[in-house]
């Protein structure tokens, strides 16, 4: 129980909660594409915010909160996936279907299946490529923002996006040929 708080603590709490309000959905979106499990994604996002809070509460400074949150999220995803490695994601996906979108959204079964296929293809990309595709085309971050998160130059991000799209097209073409 905290009975007294300094102005610094109050300001930090306020800005942290504002960062939660501003970023929770985007982080969740990014996470759910990566792990393809809505419940797991919620846990990981919460873990991301608690880890970030611990870092801040311990007196550390964060220059770019959004970039820091994404980096923490990526680490939390890696940790979570290590724990779940014994379960094949594809097997889980086939068993449970498309469990990413919340149940309240009405999406026809056919569309769900097609989206599922596209998602499967996306996650079969190299991790660095699926990450930039998710950030650029789903979370709609600019190459500059992605560069800050990944701690690489903007040029590197643009190259990765270009290559990711190429690889995706190639995988798609191969998949189409196999199905003929």
């Amino acid at each position: 129980m905290e009975l007294q708080k300094s102005k610094r603590a109050l300001d930090l709490e306020k800005s942290f909660l504002a960062a939660y309000d501003a970023n929770a959905d985007a982080l969740f979106r990014h996470c759910v594409v990566r792990v393809r499990d809505r419940e797991l994604a919620k846990d990981i996002v919460q873990e991301t915010f608690t880890r970030t809070w611990v870092y801040l509460a311990d007196g550390n400074h964060v220059e770019y909160p959004r970039a820091f949150l994404y980096r923490t999220l990526n680490n939390a995803i890696v940790d979570a996936m290590r724990k779940k490695r014994s379960v094949s994601l594809d097997a889980k996906f086939e068993e449970e279907g498309f469990e990413i979108v919340d149940e309240t959204r009405e999406i026809p079964l056919e569309v769900r299946e097609e989206i599922g296929e596209a998602m499967q293809l996306l996650s079969s990309l190299d991790e660095m490529y699926s990450t930039v595709i998710t950030m650029r085309f789903i979370n709609e971050l600019t190459p500059g923002e992605i560069a800050k998160i990944l701690e690489v130059s903007e040029n590197v991000v643009s190259v990765r996006i270009h290559r990711a799209v190429k690889q995706l097209q190639k995988l798609w073409a191969e998949r189409e040929q196999q199905s003929i």
Partner: peptide, 17 residues
């Protein structure tokens, strides 16, 4: 390819808590 990915991206962009 474009259609399916377009659909997927649109759906995912609308995904939130």
């Amino acid at each position: 390819y474009e259609e399916k990915f377009g659909d997927m991206l649109e759906t995912m962009r609308g995904t939130s808590l």
